[in-house]
Simulated scan of single mutants.
Amino acid sequence: MEGHDMAFDARAFTAFERAAHDRIAVPYAEHFAPLTSLALGPLLDTARVAAGMRALDVATGPGVAAAAARARGAAVTGVDVSPGMIALARKAHPAIVFQEADIVALPFPDGIFDAVVGNFALGHFPEPEAALAECMRVLAPGSALAFSWWDQPARQRVQGLFRETIAELGLPPHPDVPQGHDTLRFSNPKAFAELLRGAGLSGVAVTEHRTVQAMPDIEALWRAGMGGMAVTASAIAVQNAATQARAREVLARRAEAHRGPMGFEIPIAYFIGSGQRP
């Protein structure tokens, strides 16, 4: 089912995401942020982030994209629905303004930002059309918006390996995850582009990016997935210790397909979707 299913409880999903990211904030920053950081250069280039600009980083998490934008000389604000993530971002990057905010109710005037970016945020929005409308509202005319999001699990193999492990073991979703939201909806470039065009952006483009992330051992892969994928990994996290151990064994077996001379060489694939506010 897609994220705009009328029976879907968007507020409950946001509450789950908030609680989950509060819980995993520290391991996310340590073990999963290196994966999301792979997209920072292309993302900020696409949004044309440069010195003197006012930039908004939505779903900022531990503030990695916000920090990269500030390093380019931009005046950056980062927002996130998770107070735990905001606390972590403020501690790590005290010179940047971070505040707790829901993407569908941004606390900013119209047209105040010269760029809006979201690094691997899109699939976490239970109401993506409303989220894009808010981003458009705070974006200045002529300015760019750019979002990154993961490709399909067959090519984005951290996600793929964990999903295949869950399927092999027949693990049900976490009972607290509201059903009806498709986190892979925008892993389809056509759907990604349609969302951006539907928001009123012009010059819409969705570009494909592929790379490889080296991981020394199964512990690194396990920590990345369990510490970063709040929805997917929750199906494992809710299990007892014996089942979690079995999941780790299955993951290790499946990861052998990506064994290289330096450990595991995990294929990473993502899209960057962008456009300008007319």
Results as ranks from 00 to 15, higher is better:
S82P: 00
L122V: 13
L171R: 01
R185T: 08
L40K: 03
R155G: 07
A50E: 15
A257T: 13
P278R: 07
P175I: 10
A235L: 01
A25P: 13
A101R: 04
F162L: 11
G3V: 13
P109C: 08
V49N: 02
M229S: 08
A67F: 04
G118F: 07
G275S: 03
D80Q: 10
A199V: 11
T207A: 15
S37E: 15
E265L: 15
P173A: 08
R210Y: 03
G275A: 02
R163L: 13
G160I: 00
A74C: 07
A154H: 07
D80M: 06
G225H: 01
E127T: 12
S274Y: 01
I166K: 00
N240Q: 11
A230R: 05
R210S: 13
R70A: 12
E100I: 09
A237K: 11
E208Q: 09
N188F: 07
D114V: 12
E168L: 10
P94I: 06
L195Y: 10
I266E: 02
F32M: 10
M6L: 14
L184T: 13
L56S: 08
A241W: 02
D9H: 04
H258W: 12
A10W: 02
S202V: 14
S82I: 09
T14E: 12
D182W: 06
I86A: 03
D45H: 12
N188T: 10
P94E: 02
R54T: 11
K91S: 15
R54V: 06
G273V: 05
M53G: 13
G263I: 01
A74S: 06
A255T: 05
A69L: 02
E164G: 00
R18S: 08
V116W: 05
M229F: 12
R48D: 14
N240R: 12
T60W: 06
G275R: 01
R210L: 08
F8R: 03
H124A: 15
Y270T: 04
D22L: 09
R254H: 11
A131N: 06
S37H: 13
G3H: 10
G41M: 07
T46N: 04
A51D: 13
L38A: 15
V204E: 00
M229V: 01
P94H: 05
E265R: 15
W150H: 11
E100V: 15
A66E: 05
A230W: 01
S148M: 01
A191E: 11
P107Y: 09
A10F: 04
L122M: 07
S82N: 06
D5F: 05
A95C: 07
L169Q: 03
A220N: 10
V49F: 03
A67P: 03
G198R: 07
L44S: 07
L122T: 06
R163S: 10
V76A: 02
V117C: 08
R48F: 09
E164Q: 12
A233K: 00
S143E: 12
A65D: 06
E249D: 15
V177P: 09
R72I: 00
A133F: 02
A33M: 04
R70I: 00
H209M: 08
P178A: 09
M262W: 09
F147R: 01
D114S: 13
A25N: 10
L196V: 09
